[in-house]
Every structure is written in C-alpha cells, then in structure tokens.
Design a protein around this nucleic acid. Structure first.
Lengths: 260, 260
DNA sequence: CCAAATCTTGACCATTTGATCAGATTAAAT
DNA sequence: ATTTAATCTGATCAAATGGTCAAGATTTGG
C-alpha cells in the first residue's frame, strides 16, 4: 500500500507524491489482501467489480468538478451510493483512488492517436482522428477534465506516462506527419505543434465547456452544437495543414464508449 | 465581508459561492474598515499597497500550482513572507483572496482581443493578437493557469464575466472577422470557433506546459522555444483562416508586463 | 510629541476530512 | 451445514486548515 501512515504526504495539496509506473499497473483494487490476487479477483468477484466500477465513475465526476484536492471522499461516496469506509476498503487512500481514475483515462488517451497510419490519406486520417477526439470531448468530458487538471497542476502523478508512453507515441506519429510532408501531401509544419493544435482545440470543448457555452449564449451544448464544432475544427485544422477536405465517403462519427 | 461565521460555505470545494460583479469592482483590500475608503487608501498607504501586491503575487503562484481548493493560506503566507494572520487582515477570506487574484487576471484577459481592429490587415492584426497571447502564456503562465482552473471547475466565480464582458467582446470581434470574410479577405469560418482555436492553442503553452515540455524532451522551455511555437502557431492559424502570412514589416513581439 | 489610525502576529479555536478499526453480515468453498 | 473468505459500515480519531482575536508595534496626522 502507498505511504499514508507515517507520512500523510498531503494527498493532492502539493503533489510531491510518488510517481506511478507508466501503464501495465492495475492500481485500483488493492485491499483484497495486498494487491496479490487482485488481477484474478478483479475479474472474478462480481460484487467487487461492480463496486469498483461504481466508485470509479463517481470519483471521475467529483475529481473533474472539484479537482484532486477539492474532491472529498464523502462526496464521492455519496455519488457512488456507498458508505465512505467502503471506498477505503476497495481503494486504500484518496490518492490511490485518484491514481486509479487517472489510469483509466490514460489508457483512453493514447488510443485515438495510435490509429493514425502513414499509409492512409492524410486528410481522411486526420479527420477521423479529430472526430474521435471531439467525440471523446462530448462523451467523456470528465475524463478530459481530470486529465487537464492533472497536467495543469504539474502532472506529478503522470510524469512517467508523459515522458515515456506519450512521448514515444508522439515521436512515432510525428514521423508519420513528416513522411506525408516529405511526400508533398501536406504543408510543412512542425508535427508536434500540429498535434498540440489538435489536442488543444478538441479538448477545449470539454475542458472549457462552460466558457464555450456561455460565450455562445447556449444553455446547454447539444449534439448538433458538437457536430458543428467538429466540422469547423476539421475544416480549420485541415487548412492549417495545407490539406483539402477529404472526399468524405460517409460522415461516420466514430464513437467512444461514453458515460453521460 | 463574505459569509464565514455561520455558513462555512466551503471556500473552493464545491463552489456554490456568490458570483462577483463583472468588472468595476475592486475586491482585494477590504479590511481597512469595510471596503469604504479602500479605493483612496489602496493608492495612498504605502505599506498596504506593497503587502497587497506581495500577497497577490504569492497567491497567484500557489493558486496556479494547487488550484483553489488545494492552495493553503499558510503556503501563500510563506511565499509572501508574511504571517498568515496578515493575509486575513488584508483579504478577509481565502475565497476573497482568490477572487482578487482572478479579478487581476480578468482585466488582463480582455486587453489583447480588444485591440483587434476591422480596419487593419487581417493577417497582420491576427498575427499581433496571437503574439500577444503567446507572450502572455510565456510571461504570465500562472495567470493563465488560474484562469484555466477556474473555468475547468465550473467558473462559479466568473460566470458573470463570461456571460457579460467576454460574451459582449466576442460578439463585437466576431463581427470584425465576419466583415473580413464578407470582404473576401478571409476564408469563411465560424468566427467564434476561430477565436476558440486561437485561445486554446496559445493558452495550451501555459496550461499544458508540462506536457509540451515533456513530450518535446526539454528540461525547460526557453525563449527560443516559445519563439518557435509562436511562429508555428501563427503559420497554422493564418492558414486555417485562409490567410497568407503578412508582409511582416518588423518582427515586433509586443510584450506583456510579465512576472517571472 | 501625542493621539488616532493602521498594521503585525503568535496563540488559539472550530470545522473539515482522510483514514482506521472492530464487530456484524454476506458470499464462497468444502 | 460449516468453515473460510470477502464485504460492509457506524463510530471514532488525528491532522490539516481556515479563520479569529487581542495585545502590542508602527506609522500617520495634527
């Protein structure tokens, strides 16, 4: 279990906490005994699986709304419909729970980009990528917010993820962009800045949703609103990359598991 | 003074707190007596002015690093080099201090966009705007982070600012873009989405600095790094708006007061 | 130089909140 | 059925933290 007895370690306040491993770790259900048969059990035990799921869902919501420090175990417990002591039973500490929520999100984070293939048509591939990201912003805004919050406050929990997994993936995909450029199929751009552009623009619609909504004078953003945003983002990004819009064989919108 | 005796009001946790007025309010130094001669005094009293400045600076840093809920008065006091009780003397509550920090930032927020003039050359005007925003991200990253954090968690403190001041300004400047479009000087884009693009891209370099730095493998982002980012952002945004790069009479970088 | 106003600050609360635990309850295994 | 493992949970605690206060120090105004 993580340090918590002797060193309170100030859960989320200053975040000098230990940085977790990059990916393969499964950090949520540890109290079974000490993490040992957590793997086998995580699949088997029905009750455990259901409760873990419920807690993670509630936690993502609360962490998104209040940040790591602002979230309270009591609030999460309420939203999950379980007594507070139960959260500590499944997840040792608040920080452990926070990390578990982050873990889920990280997994989700790399997927869309991983699909970018050099052999595809640039405009088509990028359009699909942007759509996937916009879908994620629409369907999993809380995941995006938790991630944004973590980065915003120093990424002390996911430093290794950024430096290892994400960095590697970006290196690989930057090569794809560079290849397209060298083949004359795209305007010359710094591939990494190009990715930053796509990330910031698409995530903006989740992280800054309140601002978007308010400036637009909307009460609530609808599916149609998002369709418009998506089309507009695609247009602008493609032009930024010196690309004509793809033939658009069919306006498939991809899709992400989703929560709301 | 704000409610704190009977209704703890949970400062930053859930943010159901009262929304401040849009702009003309000066919410920082109220303990003098009850805000009355705050205005005249704020200018006069030397000690007060210096301490208020010191506290605000430290507060912006801590709020940026830890968020509103994660920040502690003790930490801010340390960074400001003053005893904690002193903060409560100048600013009533933590929430008041947070609002004062936000107030400063909001003022800073509208300025660059306000300069966008319809009579100017689109490419030149937008380039200047983007540079101003990138300078702000480089020189006042903490301001950007505090703002981002506030939006991310529901903007309960600046709802009125968004709905009134910012909305109005955006409406006015969207008209400028639309005019340029109708004059055939820009590609047709949704002006508001275009602004979102500029905001998200430029603020990304402050709010997500850790990610940018880590993915790029840098230890620290230099002035040159930012110059490169800026050039790249300008290029991409202009292309997105169907604009050729401006003649660039002189590569003036504008400038923002700055803190670091 | 005196008095009023302003500022300073260590000591001190009250509340919040993460975390623990032991006994009760339920599910799984034999 | 009986034992073992897993789960539940109310009560409780200790630390962290926002906020208060009153006495003292300093500055300002006349």
């Amino acid at each position: 279990m993580a340090g918590s007895r002797l060193t309170p370690s100030r859960p989320c306040r200053k975040m000098v906490a230990p940085i977790p491993s990059p990916f393969p770790s499964r950090s949520d259900p540890l109290p079974m005994d000490v993490t040992e048969k957590a793997q086998t059990a995580a699949r088997g035990r029905r009750i455990r699986r259901e409760n873990v799921e419920r807690i993670l869902k509630a936690a993502e919501l609360v962490f998104a709304e209040a940040g790591c420090a602002g979230a309270t175990m009591a609030d999460i417990a309420d939203k999950a419909g379980l007594p507070k002591a139960n959260l500590h039973y499944y997840f040792g500490t608040k920080e452990d729970l926070y990390r578990a929520v982050l873990d889920n999100i990280l997994r989700l984070w790399l997927d869309p980009l991983a699909g970018l293939d050099a052999s595809a048509d640039p405009a088509t591939a990028l359009t699909a990528y942007i759509r996937a990201k916009m879908d994620a912003s629409r369907l999993r805004p809380n995941a995006s917010k938790v991630f944004a919050n973590e980065i915003l406050h120093g990424a002390s929990q996911i430093g290794e993820f950024l430096a290892e997994d994400l960095r590697r993936l970006v290196d690989r995909k930057a090569a794809v962009i560079e290849q397209w450029i060298s083949e004359g199929r795209m305007a010359p751009v710094d591939p990494r800045q190009f990715f930053f552009m796509i990330w910031s623009m698409t995530q903006h619609y989740a992280d800054f949703e309140v601002q978007v909504r308010t400036v637009l004078g909307r009460k609530k953003l609808t599916r149609d609103d998002f369709a418009h945003f998506t089309a507009e983002v695609v247009r602008m990004v493609l032009r930024a990359g010196g690309l004509a819009p793809p033939d658009d064989p069919v306006s498939c919108t991809g899709g992400v598991p989703g929560e709301s």
